[in-house]
Simulated scan of single mutants.
Amino acid sequence: MKFFSLLFDLLRHLGEDAKWEAMITYIGTTNLYVVLFAIVFAETGLVVTPFLPGDSLLFALGAIGTRDVGINLPLITTLLIIAAIIGDAVNYWIGFKLGPKVFSRDEGPGAKKGVMDKLLNKKHLLRAQEFYEKYGGKTIILARFVPVVRTFAPFVAGVGKMNYLKFAMYNVVGAIAWVSICVGAGVLFGSTPFVKKNFELVIVGIVVISVLPMAIEFIRAKRAAKSGGSAVVEVATIGKSEETAIK
């Protein structure tokens, strides 16, 4: 229980050296790396954990890594890039295998809906497909910088049967760019007096900026629907035919 208490406390106060030092003292540096690896993997690889910290955690690592708390920044950065790559790959295959079954279920008034049905709304999938149609494969890279979307993007790519080699290329590029930019930003700005004094506020700002593109797209979709357009294009045979595959 103490571990979870320390972890929860750390995630709530990412900018405080004392929280990192307390965790390292309790579980050791190597185990801390394992925990951070697991968090990034789950945030990108499991569609049920989009609430885990991503951008804010990476930024905080960059800032903390420049201080004397016992973290090897180049090593943890490399490990988290690998975690992000593996996470998206696992998420893709979950979507490839499970997605079509989930979204082909009966959605009528009397249909029973399980937990997965509630978490994976078909309308969200269709909107994500439109996003893919608009931006193509580079969605995998762009989604890395948008909370929640980065968790669902690889799943949708798997459901749509996107060519895996193409997906893997975007996956690697996106993971390297995301982790490097966020950690690098922490290194550059994390030690400045303003950021150190207002770290929690800066973290909130990072989250707001990350979510902003998704909010804009949502507003545009609502306006399009009100003006008589369609924010969602129904695909009747999703996940069943190569004609609906995301290339």
Rank of each mutant, 00 (worst) to 15 (best):
G28E: 06
L57I: 07
E16M: 07
L10T: 05
D55Q: 15
T29N: 02
F41M: 12
P74R: 12
F41T: 05
D68P: 07
G62P: 06
L57C: 05
H13C: 10
G54N: 11
T30A: 13
V47T: 14
R12M: 13
L10K: 10
I64T: 06
G70F: 03
P74T: 06
A63C: 06
V40Y: 03
V48D: 11
G70D: 04
M23T: 13
L61S: 02
F8G: 15
G70K: 06
F59T: 07
D68S: 14
G28Y: 02
N31R: 07
F37K: 02
A42E: 10
D17K: 14
A42W: 11
M23L: 15
V69H: 04
V48K: 11
E21W: 01
A18P: 01
L57P: 03
A18S: 12
L52N: 04
F37D: 00
E43T: 05
L61F: 07
G45F: 01
T29W: 00
V35G: 03
L57D: 07
L57N: 07
L46T: 01
L58I: 12
D68R: 06
A38C: 10
V48L: 15
L57H: 08
G15H: 11
P74W: 08
A18Y: 09
G65M: 08
L14C: 05
G65N: 08
Y33M: 03
L58W: 13
I64M: 15
Y33A: 02
G28S: 05
K19V: 04
D17M: 13
P53G: 09
I24F: 03
G65C: 06
L73G: 13
I64F: 01
F37S: 00
Y33G: 03
L11A: 12
F41P: 02
V34H: 00
Y26H: 13
I24K: 10
I71D: 01
G28Q: 06
I71R: 00
L58N: 04
W20R: 07
I24S: 11
I27F: 00
T66P: 01
L10R: 09
L61R: 06
F41L: 15
G15R: 12
P53W: 12
E16W: 00
I24E: 11
G15P: 09
T30N: 09
F51L: 14
E21R: 15
T30R: 10
E16V: 10
T49F: 15
G45M: 07
T29Y: 00
D55L: 15
L14R: 04
I39R: 12
E43Y: 05
L57V: 05
